[in-house]
């Protein structure tokens, strides 16, 4: 079983839900990413989503777009992200790392070469936002052959007929996008999400994480009541953007501890 699978199994045994934060690698500085990853673990997260910077982040809102631009200004590319993961792995052998990004940097490196390098670096899952299952033939298999879970999105607009098609190729967990729109979008209707998750679960045995629109302990708790994992991106990236550089780690840690309390409150 993959590190991601083990993590969800362990959490289930404790009747707890996973907290999955997202940060963009190289934001705010090249040297801060690995310390931030360790700080996230200390604050109680279960899986880390590490964003691979891309020049044209079509599915992201302004907050994560700006993070990508800062990281690119710091000259951080896919190879650096793999190096950061390897560095993190030197002192953490248990927390799964999921790379999240767009197809082109991976396409440029080559899927096989990337999968080998990612496995060697200790990457556990890969989510390429703009590769839907229809275009993933081969890609998901290449990842799986290297012990990497191919993670796919489902959305409010996904018809029931497609859910099985997506889950058939997916590994690790399903990332359910709770809102139409880009990352960082507004309010969240948990009742609507709960209805959709029931349908997803009818077709899928993988754990289901929910992201988009989670910004504080209260929304984290509400989502943790219905999902297996709570994914928080823009809110954390916003904290990184607005904190003075010497306070980034402490401010992010503080925020994530608060989100953790929210997630755990759902299990009580």
């Amino acid at each position: 079983m993959s590190r991601i699978g083990q993590t969800f199994t362990a959490l289930k045994a404790q009747n707890r839900k996973a907290l999955i934060p997202f940060i963009t690698a190289g934001d705010p500085g090249k040297g801060l990413t690995v310390p931030l990853m360790h700080a996230l673990v200390e604050a109680g997260v279960d899986i880390i989503e590490l964003g691979v910077p891309f020049s044209d982040p079509m599915a992201d809102g302004p907050v994560i777009q700006r993070a990508s631009e800062r990281a690119l200004a710091n000259k951080v590319g896919l190879k650096d992200v793999l190096a950061m993961t390897a560095e993190f792995r030197k002192t953490n052998a248990t927390t799964p790392v999921v790379l999240m990004g767009y197809a082109n940097p991976v396409e440029r490196m080559g899927y096989e070469a990337f999968a080998q390098a990612a496995q060697a670096a200790g990457v556990d899952g890969v989510l390429t936002v703009d590769i839907p299952p229809e275009e993933s033939h081969g890609v998901a298999d290449v990842f799986k052959a290297h012990g990497i879970d191919p993670i796919f999105l489902l959305s409010p607009t996904t018809p029931e007929s497609r859910v099985e098609q997506v889950t058939a190729v997916a590994g690790g967990f399903i990332y359910y996008v709770s809102l139409k729109g880009v990352t960082g979008s507004a309010s969240l209707d948990t009742e609507e999400v709960a209805r959709k998750l029931a349908m997803v679960r009818a077709h899928c045995s993988l754990p289901v994480g929910v992201g988009f629109g989670i910004r504080d302990a209260a929304t984290a708790e509400a989502v943790a009541r219905i999902a297996d994992a709570v994914v928080v991106g823009s809110r954390i990236v916003h904290e990184i953007e607005t904190a003075p550089e010497n306070e980034v780690i402490s401010r992010v840690k503080h925020l994530v501890q608060d989100l953790r309390r929210g997630v755990d409150a759902a299990s009580k």
Partner: peptide, 12 residues
């Protein structure tokens, strides 16, 4: 060619 977009656009 092909369809390389996020899931939310697939149905549209």
């Amino acid at each position: 060619g092909g369809i390389f977009v996020a899931e939310t656009l697939m149905a549209a």
